[in-house]
Amino acid sequence: VDNKFNKEQQNAFYEILHLPNLNEEQRNAFIQSLKDDPSQSANLLAEAKKLNDAQA
């Protein structure tokens, strides 16, 4: 993981990586967004979790 991520951002990265119901395309999009703007990690994680739950 890129060293410019802080602890919260790293946690978001790993959580998104391991959400079971996202397809690869969705997962990659969230990860790319996280890399583009790490400050949005909490929002991105919340969105990813919502999508993950919706696809459960």
Results as ranks from 00 to 15, higher is better:
Asn21Asp: 10
Pro38His: 05
Asp53Gln: 15
Asp37Gly: 08
Glu8Gln: 05
Ser39Trp: 07
Lys50Leu: 15
Ala56Asp: 08
Asn3Pro: 15
Asn11Glu: 15
Ser39Ala: 05
Gln9Arg: 01
Leu45Ala: 04
Gln9Asp: 05
Ala12Gly: 03
His18Gln: 08
Pro20Asn: 11
Ile16His: 00
Phe30Glu: 00
Leu17His: 06
His18Val: 07
Asn43Gly: 08
Lys7Ile: 07
Gln40Tyr: 10
Arg27Tyr: 02
Ala29Met: 07
Asp36Thr: 11
Asn6Ala: 07
Asp2Thr: 01
Lys4Asp: 15
Gln55Pro: 11
Gln32Met: 10
Asn21Phe: 10
Asp2Trp: 00
Ala12Phe: 03
Gln32Asn: 14
Asp37Arg: 03
Arg27Asn: 01
Phe13Tyr: 13
Ala29Lys: 13
Gln55Phe: 09
Glu15Leu: 04
Leu34Phe: 12
Lys35Val: 11
Leu22Ala: 00
Leu44Glu: 02
Leu19Pro: 00
Ser33Asn: 12
Lys35Ser: 07
Pro38Ala: 06
Asn3Gln: 08
Glu47Val: 12
Glu47Phe: 08
Ala54Pro: 06
Asn21Lys: 12
Leu19His: 03
Lys4Cys: 15
Gln55Glu: 13
Asn3Glu: 11
Ala29Leu: 02
Ala56Trp: 04
Asp36Cys: 13
Glu25Thr: 06
Leu51Gln: 14
Asn11Gln: 15
Ala46Thr: 09
Leu19Gln: 04
Asn3Gly: 09
Leu44Thr: 07
Gln32Pro: 00
Ala56Leu: 09
Lys49Phe: 06
Asn6Gly: 15
Lys35Met: 09
Lys7Gln: 12
Ser39Val: 08
Lys35Gln: 11
Glu15Phe: 03
Leu44Cys: 07
Asn6Thr: 06
Ala46Cys: 09
Lys50Asp: 06
Lys7Thr: 14
Lys50Cys: 14
Gln55Met: 12
Asn11Leu: 15
Arg27Glu: 01
Leu19Val: 01
Leu51Asp: 02
Pro20Asp: 12
Ala12Glu: 03
Val1Gln: 07
Glu47Cys: 14
Lys35Ile: 06
Lys4Pro: 08
Ala48Thr: 01
Arg27Val: 10
Asp36Phe: 14
Glu15Thr: 06
Leu17Gln: 11
Lys4Gln: 10
Ala29His: 08
Leu19Lys: 01
Gln10Glu: 13
Lys49Leu: 09
Asp2Lys: 02
Ser39Gln: 05
Asn21Met: 09
Asn21Gln: 04
Asp37Met: 08
Asn6Phe: 02
Asn23Cys: 14
Phe30Val: 03
Glu47Pro: 00
Ala29Gln: 09
Asn43Trp: 06
Asn11Asp: 14
Glu8Lys: 02
Lys4Tyr: 08
Gln32Thr: 07
Ser33Leu: 04
Leu45Trp: 04
Phe30Thr: 02
Asn28Phe: 13
Asn52Val: 04
Gln10Gly: 03
Leu44Ile: 10
Lys4Val: 08
Val1Cys: 11
Ala46Tyr: 09
Leu22Cys: 00
Asn43Arg: 05
Asn3Met: 01
Gln10His: 03
Ser33Pro: 02
Ala56Thr: 14
Ala12Trp: 03
Lys7Val: 05
Asn52Glu: 03
Gln10Ile: 08
His18Asp: 09
Ser33Cys: 12
Glu15Gln: 09
Ala48Asn: 00
Leu19Ala: 04
Phe30Gln: 01
His18Phe: 08
Lys50Ser: 12
Tyr14Ile: 14
Ile16Arg: 00
Lys4Phe: 13
Ile31Thr: 12
Pro20Met: 09
Ala46Met: 13
Ala29Trp: 12
Ala56Pro: 12
Asn11Pro: 01
Ser41Gln: 02
Asn52Leu: 01
Lys4Leu: 09
Gln10Thr: 05
Leu51Ser: 06
Phe5Gly: 11
Glu15Lys: 05
Ile16Ala: 01
Leu44Lys: 06
Asn11Cys: 14
Pro38Thr: 04
Gln10Pro: 01
Ile31Cys: 03
Asn21His: 05
Ile31His: 06
Ala48Met: 01
Gln32Ala: 14
Asn23Leu: 13
Ser39Lys: 08
Asn23Arg: 14
Phe13His: 08
Glu24Phe: 07
Pro38Leu: 05
Gln26Asp: 05
Gln9Ile: 08
Ser39Pro: 10
Leu22Thr: 00
Pro20Cys: 11
Lys50Tyr: 13
Leu45Arg: 08
Ala48Gly: 02
Ala46Asp: 10
Gln26Ile: 10
Pro38Tyr: 02
Asn6Cys: 07
Leu19Met: 08
Asn52His: 03
Ala54Leu: 12
His18Lys: 04
Ala12Ile: 10
Glu15Asn: 04
Asn6Val: 04
Lys50Arg: 13
Lys49Ile: 06
Ile31Asn: 03
Leu22Phe: 02
Ala56Gly: 13
Leu51Ile: 11
Lys50Asn: 09
Leu34Thr: 02
Asn6Ile: 04
Ala12Tyr: 03
Asn23Gly: 10
Asn3Leu: 01
Asn52Gln: 04
Lys50Pro: 00
Lys49Trp: 07
Leu45Cys: 06
Pro20Phe: 08
Ala42Asp: 09
Ala12Asn: 07
Asp36Trp: 08
Leu19Arg: 00
Leu19Asp: 01
Ala42Glu: 15
Val1Ala: 07
Ala46Trp: 06
Pro38Met: 04
Asn28His: 06
Ser41His: 15
Asn28Val: 04
Val1Gly: 15
Gln10Ala: 08
Asn28Trp: 10
Leu22His: 00
Glu24Ile: 10
Ala42Ile: 08
Lys4Met: 15
Phe30Pro: 00
Val1Met: 11
Asn21Tyr: 11
Leu17Glu: 11
Asp36Met: 07
Phe5Asp: 14
Glu24Asp: 11
Lys49Gly: 05
Gln32Ile: 13
Asn6Glu: 15
Glu15Met: 06
Leu17Ile: 09
Ser41Val: 12
Leu17Met: 13
Gln26Thr: 06
Leu44Phe: 07
Phe5His: 15
Glu25Asp: 14
Gln55Arg: 08
Glu8Met: 02
Ala54Thr: 13
Glu15Asp: 05
Glu47Tyr: 06
Ala46His: 13
Leu45Lys: 04
Leu19Thr: 01
Phe13Cys: 04
Lys35Pro: 01
Ser33Arg: 14
Leu34Pro: 00
